[in-house]
């Protein structure tokens, strides 16, 4: 796509890799750059105002709304998107079975507990839940609710999402 609007050049650090951005417009959000320039469409946009959490990514270990971050200001930060949560083994072919075996416990629990319907809120929630459990491995029900209350889900009514988080907490506890 040839564009007439910008010529910013910078490099972002995403999922452990340097990702150069060229010919960008300075006003682009991190969400836009991830999705439209870097082929990382996992983060979703649903409000562009920091209200829904669909665009959640990790920046230097903090969960942020990527719709509210100017991409050009994220230079130097360690960014992790939903695509970066899985440690892919490059020696294995990317078949459906291999991929399914590589997903995280949180991702697996969202599937088995019914936390996914349309799935639009899901990547943001997956990042948010990983972040929560990294900081607080044994959250109370209320802590779970509070920590994901910035992630809107319109389909599930949240019940199965709570069940998914609870399942991960229990399994992680048992294996500690």
């Amino acid at each position: 796509m040839s564009e007439s609007i910008g010529n910013e050049m910078y490099t972002l650090r995403i999922n452990g890799q340097d990702r150069p951005v060229v010919d960008a417009w300075v006003g682009e959000s991190l969400l836009y750059v991830l999705r439209e320039r870097l082929e990382l469409p996992g983060a979703k946009g649903a409000c562009e105002q920091g209200e829904c959490g669909s665009c959640t990514v990790l920046m230097d270990g903090d969960a942020v709304c990527s719709c509210l971050v100017m991409a050009a200001t994220a230079v130097g930060a360690e960014i992790v998107t939903v695509e970066g949560l899985i440690e892919k083994d490059p020696s294995m072919a990317a078949t459906a079975e291999v991929i399914a075996s590589q997903i995280t416990d949180v991702q697996q629990a969202f599937i088995t507990e019914g936390g996914v319907q349309c799935g639009f809120c899901t990547p943001g929630l997956i990042v948010a839940v990983h972040h929560l459990l990294d900081k607080n491995p044994d959250p109370t029900e209320l802590q779970v609710k509070e920590s994901i209350s910035g992630n809107i889900c319109r389909c599930t009514g949240y019940g199965r999402i709570f069940a998914a988080v609870e399942a991960v907490v229990q399994v992680r506890k048992a294996s500690r």
Binding site: G42, E83, I99, I111, V116, G119, T122, I126
Partner: peptide, 23 residues
């Protein structure tokens, strides 16, 4: 379980807003 579940939790499920085309 949902057959599209794995793609949806990974962020690789293609929503209509995720499409991109040359030109």
């Amino acid at each position: 379980l949902r057959p599209d579940g794995v793609a949806k939790v990974m962020g690789s499920f293609s929503f209509s807003s995720d499409m991109w085309a040359e030109n």
